[in-house]
Design a binder for these strands. Structure first.
Ligand SMILES: [Zn+2]
Ligand SMILES: [Zn+2]
Ligand SMILES: [Zn+2]
Ligand SMILES: [Zn+2]
Lengths: 121, 121
DNA sequence: AGCAGAAATGGAAATGGTTGTCATTTTCAA
DNA sequence: TTGAAAATGACAACCATTTCCATTTCTGCT
């Protein structure tokens, strides 16, 4: 784990939910542990590759990142405040695999996210 | 329906699956009905607003579009050629609703797509 | 048909997130 | 210590998408 990856992990912890690379860069700046924006992107890349961080996309396509457990899971996200709950997706895994196989696809993957308004909002 | 929207719809019909704005622009060029790239983007915007066209994102965040029915459905998409099958998601609807309710969320929506390589690729 | 205003069009320039380049700095084992 | 390898970061390059704006096309009216 490089020094910059550690810093980015701290920023992700402080943020809690999903945040973009540039937002994380600003968080780090405010916290006297600034690192280069390029380095933030590089750190996020390897954290995602290590499956320490989840990557998904905002509606405009911008990448957002979140600190997550290693096990495969999905998210329930509040559209208002960003509060996020990790969700088990056993049903989804089967549905995706079965649907793909039925149509002769291979190397099957999937995405599935739930969004709504949480009880605090 | 403007002239350019009609042309883009034709291109989407010919393509069948998901394609990016730039790919559709090239398709139109090859077919002697070229229009400006800017106009392709504009046409796609209003077609998506009208819900005549579905929009999703490739892994790198690039937007891809497809002519779709109005009924709610999900997709099985070939990452290589864009070939697409519409998939019933009854299981998913229940999973999303139930998971959201269990955590006290309301106004619950979801996304779910399957990706893979089709038998022709 | 003739005309004015509105809408559509498209090329060029701007935008903005992300990645590539490369010189410099840091790390670390021998 | 010392030299190779990895990490870092400023800057430039990239590329999908949007904005700008001048020109063209459409539409309703006389
Ligand atoms: Zn909330
Ligand atoms: Zn899953
Ligand atoms: Zn295919
Ligand atoms: Zn559904």
């Amino acid at each position: 784990m490089s020094k910059s990856e550690t810093k980015v992990l701290h920023a992700l912890e402080r943020v809690g939910g999903f945040a973009s690379a540039q937002e994380l860069h600003m968080v780090l700046k405010r916290n006297q542990e600034a690192i280069g924006l390029t380095t933030v992107y590089r750190a996020l890349q390897s954290l995602v590759a290590d499956k320490s961080v989840d990557l998904l996309r905002r509606e405009d396509g911008e990448a957002i990142y979140r600190l997550c457990g290693d096990a495969h899971h999905h998210h329930l996200v509040c559209k208002n405040c960003g509060k996020t709950v990790e969700i088990e997706g056993g049903v989804i895994e089967k549905w995706a695999q079965k649907s793909g196989e039925e149509h002769g696809f291979r190397d099957i993957g999937h995405t599935a996210e739930i969004f709504g308004i949480c009880s605090d909002c």
